[in-house]
Computed example of a mutant assay.
Amino acid sequence: MLQRLTHRQIEAFRAVIETGKVTAAADVLGTTQPSISKMISDLEYTAGFDLFERRGRQVFPTPEALALYEEVERSFVGMAEISRVIEDIRDFRKGSLLIAGMPALALKFLPDVIAEFIAEEPGITVSLRARSSQAVLRHLSSQQFDLGFAALDTDHPAVIREPTFTAGMLAVMPIGHDLAQKRALEPQDFDQQPFIALGAEIGTRSETDLFLSKASARPRIVAEAQLSASICEMVAAGAGISIVEPVTATYFGLSGRVLVRPLIPEQPFRYDLLLPALRKPSRVASRFLELVEHKFATLFEK
């Protein structure tokens, strides 16, 4: 049970949320700025998590503070109930996570991570939106999403973009294919081979074309698709061979439906993590990212 939680601390917290300034909250409650700061500091110590970000003279509530404020406003009665909410937030028994992800990660990789996450934290509600990388960027710029996963070459002033994992693109081929005897494929291996290509509008397509041009290889393009999963399905059905991003290729390879080989020279592919720039990641989001990092590591160990 939480200790030292007082009605005055909750009043101070509520006043700071509503005024946006410690000085204004002090005026509302008829006390001093140091007194308000001390009550907020004591409340944060008792709660076990930060309630505000300090930027100059202004303070901005953390996601955890907003979750607590909803309960304070709804009830503002009974310290026992408010104490329970604080404990729920601190111990991950209350909260939500809104994620947008590119299809390459949102079809299999992220659902696997989400399943592991909710098994550990059953009180957290997770929502996943599968979108193109550019749409993921737009979603995160709205500041309404907690996390985004994409592959981008562009930035947005309202979004923090940082690499989360990089690995080489992989060749995929049907089971029993003639090239299966090779440990890695080179550009010349694709010459005159039936080939399933990414759509011309996909950025990685030009990089793959450049890879093939190093040996003047001219594969016979028999089909095109926007999604790596669609390409791998056609490969598994025997329509041809292809080159796709590493996560999807690895999952299909592990399923035993296609053969997967690295490329020489390597064609790197980077997955980006997107965060809303105007607020810090919540404790729930940070915990989820730990599982994402672990999943990337273990997937490519196999």
Results as ranks from 00 to 15, higher is better:
L140S: 12
R84D: 03
V136A: 11
D155L: 14
T125R: 11
Q144R: 07
R131G: 04
G101C: 12
A104R: 02
A115E: 13
V126R: 01
M102I: 11
I89N: 02
F92G: 04
A130Q: 11
G148P: 07
V85H: 01
F117N: 00
A130Y: 04
F109L: 09
G95C: 02
L97Y: 02
L105I: 12
L147V: 08
L110I: 15
P122F: 10
R84H: 05
F117K: 00
V126I: 13
L128C: 09
L128E: 06
I86P: 02
M102N: 10
L110C: 07
L105W: 07
P111N: 03
T154C: 14
E120Y: 01
F92P: 03
L137W: 14
V126L: 07
G95D: 00
H139S: 14
F109C: 07
R93L: 14
L107K: 06
H139E: 15
A104W: 02
A130N: 09
K94M: 12
E116D: 14
H156S: 15
L152H: 08
E120M: 12
S141T: 13
P103E: 08
P111Y: 08
L107A: 08
M102Y: 05
T125N: 10
H156Q: 10
L97S: 04
F149M: 07
S96C: 04
H156A: 13
A119F: 10
I99M: 06
P103W: 03
P157Q: 06
A151I: 03
A130M: 09
A135S: 14
R90F: 01
A100V: 14
P111S: 07
F149W: 03
P122I: 14
K94C: 06
S132Q: 08
L147I: 12
Q144N: 07
G101D: 02
E121G: 00
I114V: 15
F117G: 04
G101N: 01
H156N: 15
R131S: 10
S96R: 04
R90E: 07
L97R: 05
L107F: 09
I86S: 01
Q143C: 13
L107D: 06
R131N: 10
F149D: 04
E116K: 11
I124K: 01
E120L: 12
D112L: 06
G123V: 05
E87P: 00
A119N: 12
E121M: 08
F109W: 04
I86R: 00
K108S: 12
M102Q: 11
F149N: 01
D146M: 03
R138I: 11
A135C: 03
P157S: 09
T125A: 11
F149Y: 11
L137M: 15
T154F: 13
S133T: 15
A106V: 14
S96K: 05
D153H: 09
I114N: 00
S141L: 06
L128G: 05
L128W: 03
Q143F: 03
S132V: 13
V136Q: 01
I118D: 04
A151H: 02
G95H: 01
G95E: 00
A130W: 02
D91S: 09
L152M: 10
I89Y: 00
S142Y: 03
A104D: 15
E120C: 06
R93N: 11
S141R: 01
H156P: 06
A135T: 10
S133V: 13
R131Y: 11
A115S: 15
A150T: 12
A104H: 08
E121Y: 12
R129L: 15
